[in-house]
């Protein structure tokens, strides 16, 4: 039976207190929100903690509300299901609802938070195993070991970003607010990440993610967004690859601005810049979308560290990117994927 290791548990009710605790308690201090990622990680001894600080008692950290400038602010501890089911989110930011609906299962979405999802640990077949299993291969670089089993000659870890909301929020040009005893700062979401499987967050360890801001210009009145996720089943499974797309069109149907982010193919939500460049100024046709998908696909260089054989994943990645683009433009996505829940009711 796997059990949690012993640790001190704090539950502050005030954000400033939480920031002070996080700054003062030493390096083995961890934040927890819904705990759907942290608790299993502690149980399997992927991560260590001498103190765990829960954010769930902090007043005012949860909630979804429209801002004065017409955008949306989402508190970091808002449960995933609350975000996805919020009428304003469903209506104005349907791509976000779609991405969140694809995360794990209804009970986990009730427990898991949007902030926790953005900070969720990176994943790898050699890492997300039991303690005994990892011991039997002498661990790996990401926890307690020396080498990387995915790329043994590599000096770094290639564990991949697992968050489904991150690529979508990045494509929706979201910003995040980070708070520490040193003050607060607001940065574009992609700047919170960096390309390393171990140190995947560029955010400082003493910073608390408090708020996610969605601009008014990313809502359905201004742009079209879409999200597709590759996995074996229609529920529970993490992404093996995901693709989030947002397109801003002018009055003639020409692409003014675009964002394509790929999830689970790198240690951070990966932008497909070349593909985006190819789209700008064009009126998308099916042929153009095929070319754009191919450009984006080249960015998706999956390592052999998730479910599905890498060769197959490589072969199908383009199809998912294409589906998201086509769907954003109201075309048939021409993709069959396991159904997943949308809006609380199964769709087929």
């Amino acid at each position: 039976m796997i059990r949690l290791p012993p640790f001190a548990y704090r539950r502050p009710t005030d954000l400033a207190d939480a920031a002070a605790m996080l700054a003062g308690e030493g390096p083995e201090t961890r934040l927890v929100a819904g705990g759907t990622d942290l608790w299993p990680n502690l149980k399997r001894r992927h991560q260590q903690a001498s103190t765990v600080i829960s954010l769930m008692g902090i007043q005012g950290l949860a909630g979804v509300e429209e801002t004065e400038d017409g955008g949306l602010r989402i508190g970091a501890t808002t449960p995933l299901s609350t975000v996805a089911d919020h009428p304003v989110v469903r209506w104005r930011y349907p791509g976000l609802s779609r991405a969140i609906d694809s995360i794990s299962s209804p009970p986990l979405r009730n427990m898991g938070t949007i902030g926790g999802n953005l900070c969720v640990d990176t994943r790898c077949t050699y890492y997300n195993q039991s303690e005994e299993w990892r011991r039997s291969i002498n661990y790996c670089m990401k926890a307690a070991g020396e080498i990387c089993w995915v790329a043994p000659s590599s000096p770094r870890c290639w564990a991949h970003s697992a968050s489904d909301s991150a690529p979508m929020l990045a494509a929706l040009e979201a910003e995040v607010e980070l708070v520490s005893t040193r003050g607060s700062r607001r940065i574009p979401l992609p700047q919170m990440y960096q390309d390393d499987g171990i140190e995947y967050l560029a955010k400082q360890p003493d910073e608390i993610l408090t708020t996610i801001y969605l601009p008014a210009t990313s809502d359905a009145a201004h742009c079209r967004s879409s999200f597709w996720k590759l996995r074996r089943r229609g529920s529970i499974d993490f992404a093996v690859m995901s693709t989030a797309t947002t397109l801003w069109l002018d009055g003639h149907g020409r692409v003014e601005r675009a964002a394509i982010y790929l999830g689970a193919v790198a240690s951070f939500p990966k932008p497909a810049d070349k593909a985006v460049e190819r789209l700008i100024g064009e009126i998308p046709t099916p042929e153009l979308l095929d070319q754009v998908s191919e450009l984006a696909r080249r960015k998706a260089t999956p390592m052999d560290n998730t479910d599905f054989q890498a060769q197959w994943r490589k072969a199908v990645a383009g199809k998912y990117i294409r589906a998201a683009l086509r769907e954003a433009l109201g075309m048939d996505p021409e993709l069959l994927a396991p159904k997943h829940q949308a809006g609380g009711t199964p769709t087929s």
Binding site: R233, G234, S235, P346
Partner: peptide
């Protein structure tokens, strides 16, 4: 170890 869910 993947078994079908209700969604599958």
């Amino acid at each position: 170890y993947i078994i079908p869910t209700a969604m599958d």
